[in-house]
Design a protein around this nucleic acid. Structure first.
Length: 583
RNA sequence: CGGGAUGUAGCGCAGCUUGGUAGCGCACCUCGUUCGGGACGAGGGGGUCGUGGGUUCAAAUCCCGCCAUCCCGACCA
């Protein structure tokens, strides 16, 4: 297949578009792969469409390899499908809603768990029908509060979503594992550097879940990876190593200290160090008790929850929310505290909480037997030597502290580092959430119904285009891995023609193009009447893996082969270049 | 939703302070020269100056309202 650039619907831009910040966005627009149509909405031009289709094809092949069967749902969905699962309401403002001429409610699908569940329920009813995996590659719509970075966060985007249906937990585990392997194959074929990170399941519900992240400085996801072992986790799901437990009886009896005007950790530490005690204190010696409030999903009333963390650590509300999902959690405000006069703001300690019926949990860093300076539940007073397991007993542990660079890996104890990445895939063991909502059962051999258990698996196909561009582009343009490039070879003839004639170089390039085509290569031929410099600059910008220059060396029967990624060039005999590159 | 910025030709921008019928670069068209790293000369086509109102003899420019977009944050499979 040969495409002539003189006929291609393409216009490259010499300048960066004003609204593009990140490299993938800038270059995809400049190179004429995409054009912005609205905020978070993009049009795919011929070169971009080829990339998108190629990635879709890689995904399709690997999904079929694990037995997935492709279907295609509409994006326009009647409200009723999302009522039973509660997501018509849960999705809130992030779903596009519209009405038909009769006033009936519709939405543009942000994800399709409900539809798949109902489809299967309508067709299959015997245990013999399972297991089953269905998938689609389809356009999704989410009304993001702030679309950004071109294709990285769009309001309309292409996603592969698949769903597994199994009779039991072991079956679900196998479907999940199959997907995990398929995703590894897919991202390897796409030439992406990626990590698999433990994740929390978020609004999808369900239990086990992992994210596939493409490390990139412009990525929106923060994750944590161990500098020694392969432990990788989303910051919401990460677990860090705690110090060793201590013997509660090894600490002195707790004492109450006068600490006026010390409502913050900083003022408290200053005060302690001004008291001429037998040691110096830091924030890490204090126990900070943060008052949050939680609410059951769909519930009305907030309930207080106090979380204890070392005083030198911040509380990460997102991380807490991820673990408590679907229970809502927020920081408590003054009004919430008003109903609890025994909670003295700035001087809250855990010694009293169980007594007055407020749920208290600690971060795992607050290990059993550890001693702390903490509030005495009296204005202007703190207590020292307050020991977990002696002076208070938390109702449980909750990973609450904001993760820091250098925190210790829970597996091997080495330092963790924080990195940024682009979420390119996510796999979930949903369990029976949707099967319960829609009563998806199979009739078993004994005639009894079996509740189906499900998994849900997504790959951001359009986002992967941007992720690959982020990881591989350089200063002069895009650099596509050979496996997904729009063309295998970019042929660039440069040379002067006599008036009214075709240049020798163009004639030779035309012949080369036919030879490459016969060898099964996809060729982009720059037959434009542009200058050499312009053709070279565009070839670098467009990013095909191999650029073949038919120019000066043609007189010696040679062409120049340039590797776009390494920039390396070498001369190859004209009559050998096709066989060499085709092998 | 909070903070900041911007809307002038397909793209990137100037003009606005001090009102007088719109300009530059890229791209595009014609002719000629050029031809290995975004060539040069000459000529040309293309703009409701985001939008509504106001002030004025006269508004891209001054005043008021609205809309939209981008960036940071909040939020977000």
């Amino acid at each position: 297949m040969v495409t002539r650039m003189s006929e291609l619907f393409l216009r490259t831009l010499r300048e960066d578009p004003a609204d593009a910040e990140v490299p993938s966005h800038r270059l995809l627009v400049r190179a004429g792969y995409i054009r912005r149509t609205g905020p978070g909405i993009y049009t795919w031009l011929p070169l971009g469409k080829r990339i998108l289709d190629t990635i879709g094809q890689v995904v399709r092949e690997e999904m079929q390899r694990i037995g997935g069967q492709e279907v295609l749902f509409p994006a326009l969905l009647p409200r009723e499908f999302y009522e039973a699962s509660g997501r018509w309401t849960d999705y809130g403002d992030s779903v596009f809603r519209l009405q038909d001429r009769k006033g009936a409610d519709y939405m543009l699908g942000p994800t399709h768990e409900e539809l798949f569940t109902l489809l299967v329920k309508g067709e299959f009813s015997s245990y013999r029908d399972y297991p089953l995996t269905l998938f689609q590659i389809q356009t999704k719509y989410r009304d993001e509060a702030r679309p950004r970075a071109g294709l990285l966060r769009c309001r309309e985007f292409v996603m592969k979503d698949s769903y597994s249906f199994d009779l039991d937990d072991a079956g679900l585990q196998k479907s999940y594992d199959d997907h995990r392997v398929a995703y590894q194959r897919i991202f390897e074929r796409l030439g992406l550097d990626y990590r698999i990170a433990f994740a929390v399941s978020g609004a999808m519900g369900g239990s086990a879940s992992e994210e596939f992240l493409a490390p990139a400085t412009n990525g929106e996801d923060t994750f944590v990876q161990c500098t020694n072992c392969d432990y990788t986790a989303n910051t919401e799901a990460v677990e860090i190593a705690a110090p060793p437990k201590q013997d509660p009886s090894s600490h002195p009896e707790s004492v109450v200290l006068d600490t006026p005007d010390t409502p913050t950790i900083e003022t408290l530490v200053d005060r302690l160090n001004g008291m001429h005690l037998d040691r110096t204190f830091t924030g890490a010696d204090t126990l900070k008790n943060v008052v949050l409030k939680t609410r059951q999903p769909g519930g009305k009333d907030w309930e207080l929850l106090v979380v204890g963390v070392p005083g030198d650590r911040e509380v990460d509300l997102k991380r807490i929310a991820g673990q408590l999902e679907p229970v809502e959690v927020e920081q408590a405000d003054a009004d919430d505290l008003a109903g609890h006069p025994k909670l003295v703001r700035g001087y809250i300690g855990p010694q009293l909480l169980a007594e007055i019926g407020i749920r208290y949990v600690v971060d795992p860093l607050v290990v059993p037997g550890s001693a702390w300076v903490t509030g005495a539940n009296v204005q202007d007073k703190h207590a020292a030597h307050v020991v977990r397991g002696r002076d208070f007993e938390p109702a449980g542990e909750l990973g609450a502290v904001e993760i820091r660079d250098g925190d210790r890996c829970a597996r091997c104890g080495s330092a963790l580092e924080i990195a940024r990445g682009i979420e390119i895939g996510h796999i979930f063991q949903l369990g029976r959430k949707y099967a319960d909502a829609f009563e998806l059962d199979a009739q078993g051999a004994d005639g009894e119904p079996i509740r189906i258990t499900m998994g849900s698996y997504g790959i951001g196909v359009s986002r992967a285009v941007a992720a690959i561009a982020e990881q591989s582009a350089d200063d002069s343009g895009l650099v596509w891995p050979a496996s997904i490039a729009p063309y295998d070879v970019h042929l660039v003839p440069v040379g002067k023609a006599k008036p009214g004639e075709t240049s020798e170089q163009l004639a030779a390039a035309e012949q080369l193009a036919r030879d490459f085509e016969a060898a099964g290569k996809r060729v982009l031929l720059d037959d434009r009447g542009a200058t050499a410099g312009e053709k070279f600059a565009d070839a670098d910008l467009l990013g095909m893996p191999v650029i073949v220059i038919v120019g000066k060396a043609l007189a010696e029967g040679q062409v120049e082969v340039k590797d776009r990624k390494s920039g390396e060039r070498r001369n190859v005999a004209l009559d050998r270049v096709v066989s060499e590159l085709a092998s």
